[in-house]
Design a protein around this nucleic acid. Sequence first.
DNA 1: GAGTAAGCGAGACGGTACGTCGTGTCTTATC
DNA 2: GATAAGACACGACGTACCGTCTCGCTTACTC
Lengths: 221, 221, 221, 221
Amino acid sequence: MPPTKAPDSSRRSDRSRRAIHDAALALVAEVGYRRTTIEGIAARAGVGKQTIYRWWPSKAAVLMDAFLDLAGRTAEEAGTGPGDGEEPPAADPPGGGAPGFPDTGDLAADLKAVLRATVDELNDPVLEAVTRALTAEGIVDAKLGDEFVRKLLDPQLALYVTRLRAAQEAGHVRADVEPRVALELLVGPLMHRWLLRTLPLTHAYADAVVDHAVGGLAPRP
Amino acid sequence: MPPTKAPDSSRRSDRSRRAIHDAALALVAEVGYRRTTIEGIAARAGVGKQTIYRWWPSKAAVLMDAFLDLAGRTAEEAGTGPGDGEEPPAADPPGGGAPGFPDTGDLAADLKAVLRATVDELNDPVLEAVTRALTAEGIVDAKLGDEFVRKLLDPQLALYVTRLRAAQEAGHVRADVEPRVALELLVGPLMHRWLLRTLPLTHAYADAVVDHAVGGLAPRP
Amino acid sequence: MPPTKAPDSSRRSDRSRRAIHDAALALVAEVGYRRTTIEGIAARAGVGKQTIYRWWPSKAAVLMDAFLDLAGRTAEEAGTGPGDGEEPPAADPPGGGAPGFPDTGDLAADLKAVLRATVDELNDPVLEAVTRALTAEGIVDAKLGDEFVRKLLDPQLALYVTRLRAAQEAGHVRADVEPRVALELLVGPLMHRWLLRTLPLTHAYADAVVDHAVGGLAPRP
Amino acid sequence: MPPTKAPDSSRRSDRSRRAIHDAALALVAEVGYRRTTIEGIAARAGVGKQTIYRWWPSKAAVLMDAFLDLAGRTAEEAGTGPGDGEEPPAADPPGGGAPGFPDTGDLAADLKAVLRATVDELNDPVLEAVTRALTAEGIVDAKLGDEFVRKLLDPQLALYVTRLRAAQEAGHVRADVEPRVALELLVGPLMHRWLLRTLPLTHAYADAVVDHAVGGLAPRP
DNA sequence: GAGTAAGCGAGACGGTACGTCGTGTCTTATC
DNA sequence: GATAAGACACGACGTACCGTCTCGCTTACTC
């Protein structure tokens, strides 16, 4: 059990929770993560600081919840939208809801569609600030990083695994390839460029990564 | 003209510079980057705060200099050491400049040697703290990130480019492959695992990445 | 009409009232008035904060009620006790209302008995903390001070007035002396020493004060 | 030696010290002691909070220093004023400078002059707030009370002692009277009325106290 | 060799944010 | 409808660092 008693979450104010999420996201977008303070979030949300400290252990945790909440809401809207077309639903890192990954039978094409969408998302200036902040925080703080991976990243990556297993069954990928490794062959290079800003992150780059990686995964001739 | 008059670096105290480097590295190792403060560094180094502010713009800049200095000294020691063997000198991210990249003619083997060395370095608990801190800082602060890439990363990556060009000329890699892209196919997955701690970073993983990537880069049969 | 609707005191929980009194007195004795908080009293009494706020306007008011209650109970016990002796029942500041002031015909002796008892009470370490706290609060807060004087002090002082008037009638005190002034000549010096801690408060001091004061009040020779 | 090292008082900013004094006195006069906060004093003085915490242990200590400083300045002005007349220089509690106590040979008259001046001061609305606050604080906090007595009260009372000794030598007061006790016979009643607000504090009251007290101190006929 | 100007150690300063505590109000569920 | 419990907005607390500033002191360089 925790050293000090936990608050009663059934009495939690939903109004405050939402206001805090909104304020946090808005402030990060406006002034950046570094200059976003808990005090600032509280003031902007019209909330006492204690209400933040009662429910979150750190600024990063607030932002992460806010981000997850945003992703959830976005996904919900997308899900309840009108009968969506058949083409590129993509796997949004923030949420990405249920269906996720296309499977047209053409692995390379499917991967390109998804990675291009990922590139677009990583280049979105609003999401970028928050995602960078959370990633950076997770790199240094293992606890937070784990949560980040578990809640945000793994659900996405699981979709890759599913698609890759299907490709293996269809004989487009060698059976001895570990899907978790294959997936990193695709996602790793994108992250590398995005995080380190070595070179521009473009659709063409995504395509090249897919081409090379799929070449290495295909059955030996 | 300079906006404010710059200090005269010829009169700079080398003694203080070194003490600051040492204190910064020691503190990051002991208490972590977050809890390392400029005041703490100054106190530990027996130095006035102004001496730090005079020569560096931020805590991250101090640490980066300290890290580069450490790398330089380490490389120097390695270079002035006794006649070192011929095989795996590896490309240490922190420095390691001189000897560079093995070229035995077997691309996969050479890459495995280098990536295994990189894995070992990333798993070194002392270097890890500093490297993570600087990487995380660079992810959020573009200016610092550029410097990080320029001074630390690019020299390493250039060695990959050289080796890959040699492989292209030897016909082991297709001519239409862009070396900068190929390189990221190798390094990206490692960074992904290391930064996000999704799965353990092992020699076996390095080998698998090389095998898959080289498969995708090789000339079509 | 009342500004905001007052609570229905007929439904008030006597159990809570007593628990609050006890908790308040105990906390003041244990940690001092400053560090006694309404939250602390509520927690200690096993009572909701609102129950305190409903019936008292301030921490000082709670403590004052508790003190009066204590005095009342103490007095009651004294009154219902076994046949008490005849001599020095004293006029306890905290209650002691009933029996009142000795009148042996010797004014100086009677005053000495009473003032010595007062000295003892002011030196009692348990009562001291509470009395000091209430006095200090009353000095700064006029409203509270009035209540303090009206409920606690005046009943005591009235006994002096009675005794002094008797002395005037007996010809031991000049007729042109205002009893309220005479009384302060006796009580003022004691309070001065006690409140300001200039010098120790002893029986000898009480005697000296009485001797000098009675000398000044006696009929001119 | 103290547990944490003391600041270097030779480098203290006099400008800040004065600004803090002024702000403290102004705030107490404007909003009262209770609602005066250290934060408020710092803001009003244009000073960092730490500058207050560096030099004073509490709000009360700040106010006390401010009060002493004010008294010192007031006394200085009075001292450097034009050739002051001979009659009632009075012994101002705040400061009271050098000369202090009149000695016309008529003890009762001298005491009346001084006590009337004291009455006037205690009725001065500006000084009253500060004096009440400090007194109340000193009643509860023994450490502060001691300082209050030592720095503010004792110097004043010493003047009474001197005057009373002179009266003893002149044969107007019995030799067996302890001046410290005699003095409290005069000052105690005034303080009693002022602190507890039992009855109005007037010149007539001061005169009555003096008359009765001096009667009690005079040699037996 | 004296004069002078910079770097230096030290640390006080005006600030900002921290994370905690207590206030007085409000809400929920129980009796 | 009073109560125990406690979440809430708010305000102040006392602390930690920030980056700037002023002190003497030491250490070159200039005249």
